[in-house]
Design a protein around this nucleic acid. Structure first.
Lengths: 196, 196
DNA sequence: ACCTGAACACCGTTCAAGT
DNA sequence: ACCTGAACACCGTTCAAGT
């Protein structure tokens, strides 16, 4: 059977979600498709590149258009929540995206979209990019933490003390951090307006 | 020869700095010490635990006490810069710390110190912790990015266009993001002061 | 263009046995 | 307590060869 890049990425997403990132090996993907490992290198030059495609697929699947009639900062919040939801929707999603990002690949579309939205708020290009980067770092880091703790709670048996309310606390802490950054951005806006 | 945990960690730090994270294998560490790989498991229960010790060693080596007579927010900035410097001082330092953190280990001391400093600013415990978390995420993410780009520039030959001023731009973008978050925190302070 | 088969050069971890 | 030696069950990647 002959496969396309998209078939391979889909299978990889399935393996990731069912068995986790450590089991997402080239050999595993190949064997689930009934292929030799070497066949994958006809579609992707390396595992890193394949993983980048998987990460982008996760984020694309979670992608939602901005709601109508929202201000720029409401749209930034919506996009950030969307990124969080997309990563949380798959096992080890945050770790995968972070790994791919650490390698210098992936997640360029969400970043560009955030930057454009901030620019709509009247900020200049370079500030908008830096602010978008700050938000991306926060979102990746926070969701990574959340998923790590969720995993720790599901593996161990510490649910008696911490469990239950934890996801609500995670959500609250996510919203708080996001607000902190947005307040910082808005402050620059008012400062600029007051001067200009 | 008989080694202690600290000897192994020191060797691991050397290997990391000279050859990078991908070459930091249990077999490599063992062979540089003249040991069998299995000997390492007498000192560390797993590679992850060893890596956590290496990450903490990096951060400890870069540790500087707060300067005298600084306000809480100036101390937060100083500590954040210190973390950045510590990670940048070693090859793949940021990626190592991020990896260890994603596994749920390490970097607890810097986080606790940041949270305590923010609490000194008059914020309550849970807010201080969440704000410290936001800063840690930003620092890890940003420095990871910086190191990735530095690496890309040193491997490839793209210095003609981007190179040269890049590290200064990185530093500036780090300071900007940090300011954004701190402004958000300070805003909460003033809001609370105005009410209380 | 897409894939097989075989090989190369590695991994982390376990465990009985030594001193 | 600290380490050896050997094994188990894997990795990512390359490359000649097939269709």
């Amino acid at each position: 059977m002959r496969y396309h890049r998209s078939d391979i990425v889909e299978r990889a997403v399935d393996i990731l979600d069912q068995y986790g990132l450590p089991d997402l090996s080239m050999r595993r993907i190949a064997s689930e498709l009934g292929l030799q490992p070497s066949a994958l290198y006809h579609h992707f030059t390396s595992k890193q590149v394949l993983l980048a495609a998987v990460a982008d697929e996760l984020l694309t699947r979670g992608d939602r258009p901005d709601a109508d009639g929202l201000s720029w900062d409401e749209r930034v919040i919506g996009q950030s929540r969307g990124l969080r939801d997309a990563m949380l929707a798959f096992r080890d999603g945050a770790e995968l995206v972070a790994t791919v990002h650490a390698f210098g690949l992936g997640a360029r579309t969400p970043h560009a979209r955030l930057a454009a939205t901030i620019r709509d708020g009247g900020f200049d290009e370079s500030f908008s990019r830096a602010a978008a980067t700050t938000i991306m770092h926060f979102v990746f880091g926070h969701v990574s933490d959340e998923q790590t703790h969720l995993q720790a709670n599901s593996v161990g048996a510490i649910d008696d003390v911490v469990g239950g309310g934890t996801d609500r606390a995670d959500k609250a802490s996510f919203e708080l951090g996001l607000t902190l950054i947005l307040d910082g951005i808005r402050l620059r806006h008012h400062a600029a307006s007051a001067v200009g």
